[in-house]
């Protein structure tokens, strides 16, 4: 069922920019259109690019936002998971709980 939903109408998660738009809905309570425009503006791309996995692979690599693990094997030096979330938090100007706690627990100021 989840697979059908993902193909029928889903943004694509972090294959695209679905995770970024979702963060603006969760942390800033933005409706879909506002969240998409906000993320597109921050990334310097079009709204349509946000759900295009081909466009977003390049954009995510350019901004260090993380890509699928299989792609990371091709780009082993790129940020992934918690590393990528540091960059997502900064780029979107939105606090990410796990990033804030990571910084706090290792005494990292950034």
């Amino acid at each position: 069922m989840e697979g059908a939903h993902a193909h029928a109408a889903g943004m694509g998660g972090y294959r695209t920019a679905g995770d970024l738009v979702a963060r603006m809905q969760m942390a800033r309570r933005m409706r879909l259109g506002e969240a998409k425009r906000y993320v597109a503006d921050k990334l310097g791309c079009s709204v349509r690019d946000l759900s295009d996995p081909v466009a977003m692979e390049t954009i995510r690599v350019d901004h260090g936002l993380g890509t699928l693990a299989c792609t990371s094997a091709v780009h082993p030096a790129e940020p992934g998971m918690i590393e990528a979330k540091f960059n997502i938090s900064e780029l979107l100007d939105v606090p990410i709980n796990s990033v804030a706690r990571f910084k706090d627990r290792v005494g990292l100021q950034r």
Binding site: E2, H7, A8, A9, G18, A22, A35, V47, S51
Partner: peptide, 18 residues
Amino acid sequence: RFAAVDIGDEVVLSNDGT
């Protein structure tokens, strides 16, 4: 067998139970 929204009209999936 399948239906889908137009390209560009995708929405956020907040799946429970994942």
